[in-house]
Simulated scan of single mutants.
Amino acid sequence: MILVTGGTGLVGSHLLYHLSLKNDNIRAIYRTDSSLEKVKKVFSFYTDDATFFSKIEWFQADITQVPAMIPAFVGVKHVYHCAAFISFNQKDYREMRKVNIHGTEIIVNLSVDAKVEKLCFVSSIAAVGKSLDDNLIDEECEWNKELDNSGYSITKFGAEMEVWRASQEGVEVIIVNPGVILGSGFWNAGSGKLFSQVYNGFKYYTEGITGFVAVQDVVKPMIQLMNSTVKNERFILVSENKSFKEIFFLIADGFGKKRPSIKIKPWQTAIFWRFSWLVSKITGIAPLITKYSAKSAHSVSKYSSEKIKNTINYEFEPVDKSIERVCENYPKE
């Protein structure tokens, strides 16, 4: 039996489809019935055959609640831990610690108790350290707790520490650190917002650089690594390092829309995130931009995926092709 947490999220839903191609015993955690419709929509991007979705045994539970999670591990040999709380709003820090660190602690403890053979954890490049000599960032770059890290970065690093503990208690582990994930089906969250904004005429861009990767190039290596003899390793998953300007332009071209034309400078976002923070304090509404999302929009971080390429001979899809496919799946009016 394969167990997938976060089965109704971007990575989890695409992972479930690819797992269903060759596996019949799949159990996935979900929170609400409405979230299952999103998974069905993701499956529809791949196939009209409903038998793939019907292979999944859906298990309703909260990963932070031990009693509810214990039955989910019955008969489980492989665990894909995709569940996470993603936010750059410091107001969400406590909840992120609860889900990302404490939730992972529970998954690890139950995996050890159930004698799970192998655990794959979806981390993030946010939990990878910076390069000290301006070379590409790789798996050997150590995360520095002394830096001004975002709450999300802190909690993903904390979750990784829990997973490494599993490797010391008899469970083989794989950690993947994807870049910004480009995928279809979740248009109001994560990178899906980039597509929605550009489609609706977003005019602004920044020139910060980071790593981008298609969701298919996250889940396929996960499955390959879990079915291999590789164990107790972490892998950065990035197809290409590109600027947000390049990404916005590719998305606009994919939609046949006008490219964003107004460059936003660091001092402008510095003013805007402070103003947004003040408005949020007064109204209680989540800020449009935060200190850390503003910082990431301008920072330059370039990543290497040589380790995963060399380990399983994996080739990533070019980012322009990934964006073209996502644009084709976008629900146009």
Rank of each mutant, 00 (worst) to 15 (best):
Y303R: 07
K220F: 00
H81F: 02
T210A: 04
I285T: 14
E333C: 00
E142T: 15
V198E: 08
K38T: 05
S87G: 06
N310R: 13
G284A: 10
F52R: 13
S322D: 07
E317C: 08
Q168V: 01
W187E: 11
S299P: 00
S276M: 14
D148Q: 09
V215Q: 05
N313P: 00
K193N: 14
V180W: 01
Y204D: 07
N149Q: 15
C120N: 15
F316A: 10
Y292W: 12
E142W: 00
D48I: 09
S191M: 06
A68T: 10
D24Q: 13
S123G: 07
V230I: 13
H102L: 11
V300R: 14
K302V: 11
N200Q: 15
D33V: 04
V122H: 04
E160L: 04
S301C: 06
L16D: 11
F157R: 15
I323W: 02
G284C: 10
L147I: 04
A189V: 08
V180F: 03
M69L: 14
I154V: 14
E105M: 02
V39M: 08
V319A: 05
L132Q: 15
K332V: 13
K55Y: 06
L225C: 09
N23E: 15
M226S: 08
K77T: 08
R31M: 10
G211L: 01
D320G: 00
E333S: 12
F212A: 06
K265R: 14
F73Q: 12
D133K: 14
I264Q: 07
I175L: 12
V230C: 02
E324R: 12
V163Y: 05
Q90V: 07
A294M: 09
F244K: 01
K41Q: 15
H298K: 11
R259F: 01
E207P: 00
Y199I: 02
A83K: 09
K309Y: 00
E317Q: 13
E333G: 01
E139Q: 08
R97C: 11
I26F: 00
N232S: 05
E169Y: 00
K257M: 07
F248V: 01
V99Y: 01
E140P: 00
R274L: 13
T64W: 02
V300S: 12
M222P: 04
T283K: 12
C82Q: 12
G254L: 03
Y30V: 06
S13Y: 06
I236P: 04
D62Q: 13
S280H: 03
A166Q: 08
I285K: 15
E37K: 14
E95K: 11
V74R: 09
E37T: 10
H81G: 04
A127H: 06
G7C: 06
G170Y: 08
T210N: 11
V99W: 01
S35Q: 15
G183S: 07
F45M: 05
S20N: 07
K307R: 13
T283P: 09
S191H: 07
G183Y: 05
K115V: 10
T5D: 06
L136A: 06
E139H: 05
K130N: 15
Y17A: 03
Y292G: 05
S196V: 01
E306P: 00
V326W: 01
A166C: 04
P178T: 14
G9K: 10
I175A: 03
I285F: 01
Y152T: 08
Y303L: 04
K257V: 02
E169V: 00
L3Q: 07
A270N: 15
S322K: 02
F121K: 08
S191R: 02
Q65C: 13
K118N: 13
I308N: 03
S150R: 03
